[in-house]
Nucleic acid binder design. Structure first.
Lengths: 193, 193
DNA sequence: AATATAAACTAATGTAATTAGTTTTGCAAT
DNA sequence: ATTGCAAAACTAATTACATTAGTTTATATT
């Protein structure tokens, strides 16, 4: 299987995502990836720009997958239902692809155009869903920050086993989103500073 | 300075926390720590249980410091004010000691008694602050999860530069907490499932 | 002063990322 | 079909780090 393994960038990213999901993000090394693909690690450099490059590609891939899930979830719904659906999709994605999700947060290069693009897609999805609440320009931005904080924080804590109690996490999430929506008037530009 | 540098475990942890804050958590290596302390890296093993042991100690130290700040913040206040104050203290701590804060989340050993203890102190502080809202037993647990998600998520996103917009983050936080409090009735056991 | 212990050291091993330089393959153009 | 080239794989070597084993040395206690 040695000569011409027929690799390409996408194959590497898929395989690396698998490793991340199965063995954790720490296990995503070029050595492990090369072994999984039946190749020596320097060969990977023909397709990716080192470990850092791979991590950036993983982040982009993860964001794209996340966007796909969230986008499907809000298809044809709006208002509170859309916010709940989007949130549930976010958390479900992180649960089903824990390693891949984590790569979206450890992106080494902040100024990577495709990475920013993928992030902006998700952002615009959230913005669209929050339009229903008439928060004003700044209010909307604060609300986005809030929702992102909630989703990322919840996901992150759940992943690291931070929710020790035997209490249904989906209920926790659902109530948290309901809480957020119920109080969302506090995000408005007027009436609060 | 070679013979008998006079190190001890606490000195190592302090120095490692400095590295984490100044150069990021990735820079916390035994090699770097040893260099900073004027010692060869194997010498560190007299005081810590390898890199993993150091990380656990860092996490404990970070949680203790965080607890100290939060605890001071709620001194003598209660209700909404306490929740706001505690939240602000949490975020301020993460801002002032970004590396140390991050170590509290990457704890390798989940079943470490002192680590759990330090975490439980913070938890009990939150529980106490939320007593004011009469949420019931389960409601309280869901609310704790919610507040932790918010604080960790907000902190984490801010740290990674996720809040691109030129919009005051303290206002975002304040509104998020107000939103949470305003809707907290949704955490109650009755009236929602 | 003698000694035991703990703290430092040197030396060595294993893993990983990365670079340089080489071989080989497959396709494209003749 | 043959030639030639670019890409994809390789080997070899370097660097950095964690870790272990075994040695030396300082210091506190007797």
């Amino acid at each position: 299987m040695s000569p011409r393994a027929g690799l390409d960038t996408h194959t590497l990213v898929i395989a690396a995502a698998d490793i991340a999901d199965e063995q954790g993000i720490e296990a995503v090394t070029l050595a492990a990836l090369a072994a999984k693909l039946g190749v020596r690690s320097p060969s990977l450099y023909n397709h990716i720009n080192g470990l850092q490059g791979l991590r950036t590609l993983l982040a982009i891939y993860g964001l794209e997958q996340l966007y796909t899930m969230m986008s499907a979830a809000v298809e044809g719904v709006s208002g509170d239902i859309a916010v709940h659906a989007m949130s549930q999709a976010y958390v479900d994605f992180a649960r089903s692809r824990p390693g891949l999700y984590e790569t979206t947060l450890r992106a080494p290069e902040l100024e990577n155009v495709p990475l920013e693009l993928a992030g902006n897609l998700i952002l615009s999805l959230m913005i669209h869903a929050l339009k229903a609440y008439d928060l004003g320009e700044e209010g909307e931005l604060h609300a986005i920050r809030g929702l992102r904080s909630i989703l990322h924080g919840f996901t992150s804590l759940e992943h690291k086993g931070g929710f020790g109690m035997p209490l249904d996490a989906n209920i926790s999430l659902s109530r948290l989103i309901s809480t957020f929506i119920a109080g969302i008037g506090n995000m408005k530009d007027v009436g609060k500073g």
